[in-house]
Design a protein around this nucleic acid. Sequence first.
DNA 1: GGTCTCG
DNA 2: CGAGACCAACGCCCT
DNA 3: AGGGCG
Length: 868
Amino acid sequence: MARAAKGSATTAGSAKTAAEQAVKAALDPYRRKRDFAKTREPAQGGDAGVGGLRFVVQKHHARRLHYDFRLELDGTLKSWAVPKGPCLDPKVKRMAVQVEDHPLAYGDFEGDIPPGQYGAGHVIVWDKGQWLPEGDARSGLRSGKLKFELRGHKLQGRWTLVRMHGKARQEERQPAWLLIKEQDAQARPLDEYDLTEAEPDSVRSLPAAPGAVAPEPAPETAPKPARASRRAALPDTLQPQLATPADHPPAAAQRADWLWELKYDGYRLLTHIDAAGRVRCFTRNGHDWSARLQPLVRALQQLPVRACWLDGEIVVEGEQGAPDFQALQNAFDQGRTEAIVYWLFDAPFLAGEDLRDQPLALRHAQLQSLMQAVPLPPLLRLSEVFDAPPESLLAAAAKLGFEGLIGKRVDAPYQSQRSPHWIKLKHRLRQEFVIGGYTEPQGARSGFGALMLGVHAQEGSRRVLRWCGNVGTGFDARQLGVIHQRLRAHESSRCPFDPPPAGMHARGAHWVRPVLVAEVAFGQWTREGRVRHAVFQGLREDKPAREIVREAPGVEPAAAPAPAQARAVPTVRHAPRITHAERVIDRHSGATKGELVAWYAQAAAQMLPHLKGRPVALLRAPAGVGGEVFFQKHAKEQQLPGVRQLDPALDPGHAPLLQIDQAAGLLQLAQLNTIELHTWNARSDRIAQPDRLCFDLDPGEGVAWECVQEGALLLRTMLEELGLVPFLKTSGGKGLHVVVPIRRGPDWDTAKGFAQAVVAHLARTLPDRFVQKSGPRNRVGRIFVDYLRNGFGATTACAWSVRARPGLGVSVPVGWDELPQLRSGAHWGLRDAPARLAVGNTPWAAMARSSRALGGAMRVLGYTPGAD
DNA sequence: GGTCTCG
DNA sequence: CGAGACCAACGCCCT
DNA sequence: AGGGCG
């Protein structure tokens, strides 16, 4: 650098002196911190940049490695300490703490600062070049916003320094700033290229200000950064979640909230796989059993996952394939652990992520994806999850020899304690008994009081009927009468039991000949051979009474059918991470975000046919029902797995429209607080031609529900007279939706005009019932039929969508024959709609073959497109 | 809830 | 970083 | 005409 350049940075005369004094003052803090007898750092001086302002970045291995970012201004280097160094990714902002001004000469300093001195350690010139402020740099520096361009070896393009507002730092003269790369040609995502890692070395030997942009290394050669993510540290120990014993399944109304798994009669086992793949297995009390379970440890090592905690139960399978607790103990006693298999049912941590606050359904789905990713080692099993009614599952489980079920709330987090969110339901025993008598009814009861039960038993050479208790519940009034009739027909004076039960005469016992057979469910056999907690199930006609003996539990040799018609919950690939699952989104019902997600997870199979192939619009409610909501039809910035971004040409002038083709997309959107999903009336492949019409029957203030029902029927009749085939669904809100499939052909204006003509006709014919115009004013006492949902870009709530209203109604397809039974447009809500999933879309089964060309209907109605 | 923009 | 805006579109109504 | 509303 030519000494002659010095003059160019300053002006002549007395101004020069003033400027030099200002520089001197500015460098005062710098000098006061250093002892220049001990450090080689320059005390002052240095050259201004040639033809522009200089910048330098020094990599400083002090107590902590950091980068010193310096910009020449007014004769000194304005300096910031950037702990992580500059980053080319505009998304990544780097903290930059402003420090004391340095002399210009410092920009060339490279070397060691001796121990004991300020900033002791090694310094290299990591980058240098020119900087070009955008606008006035001095005022930018003062106001806390500095935009500029860098022309260095490593750093180029546009950057911003922004001062933060934190108070504390300001006062100690060390304001915190952010160093941010602006979006331009030099910007690069961090995960593709990590500049500080790729370019660690000094540039001092290179020319200060390269004329051309230095070639960047190819991204392939950049070492992959091992980036720390927001992942939680994996705990070293984990207590298992335990189930609470329950007598009964949850009430039918809450069934949808529960998933069921078989109860394995073995030992609980928690597996920890660390980041290096080391596997350790712990019992529920935290004992490390890895050494005793070597075959299992080896099997677990084959799972394609690290940094996780898995939860499950180890069992030894008995002869029937059901777990056998005795065999498990024997296996340990004899050191024969290769017969032990591991049923996995939960993943509190997976791939370094803490999933404990995720809904169970999602944890299980992720475990399932993991275990389906590779051929499963034979010792590992995935515990299947069922959503069938627990009664039938319990029966099936019993036949398979399982001791019961574990019920788990679909939306519950994983808690390391005994929790009401997990219940264990032991199956009740169930078998046939011979009826040997009955007792008198008490009080208001008619027919009889209880049936006296017996089984045949061998006593020496004699075969006797052994009394084993009574059953007095489980009958309805009709059964009481019918059975009483049957009993009377077999009445006898002789007691068939041997020995005769004591104390029965006091209860008015009647004996009957031992020919009738009752099926009875009961909790268990008492030691005396009596049934406990017996419930009558029905009379059995198919089994002769003489064959009835006490059955050993769980050894039914008949091949058990697969658990009755249970639908396994389908896997959701790319299931999103759900945050704040416990947050209440509807104060009215107390429903949580987790329940919303769980609903869409369950309903996905029924809902996807309605979503597939159509642009979708979202109603999102980040603050829940009653909070601020917004509609969303487009999205560019965010790409979510399972949410497709359509060709932007479909809706010119906008970001891409969205479409959901996969369950994961539905869940992703639920995670974004999407409560309602609305669909277009056209499919994406021919967006200009709607394939259906929608009529939204929206009752005004004070309209009786019967009128809405009647109105829907009137609309139906009218549409059918026009040769169309309408379908019905609840809106999930106040009213009903009538959906009419049409042949594609007419454009949007024609479809909308036709729909308007239909509604106008309806309103003309029955003006006291219907209005065509919206607005609450003229709508009181009448039904507004909204035809506006038939224009380009208009949408209507999709079938199975939840509605963002108090109570969270669900829009459900129904048959016209069901209309009279509906109680409101919100007949089904989030909590009871799951029960309706079994009916699913069958009321609309004919829709696909019911589309009609609009031409005929337009003629009948006398509607001409274009003529309003 | 996520992203962008602004300071 | 921290706060705030944005995230539809149509026909109402009101001014 | 323009803005807020649902």
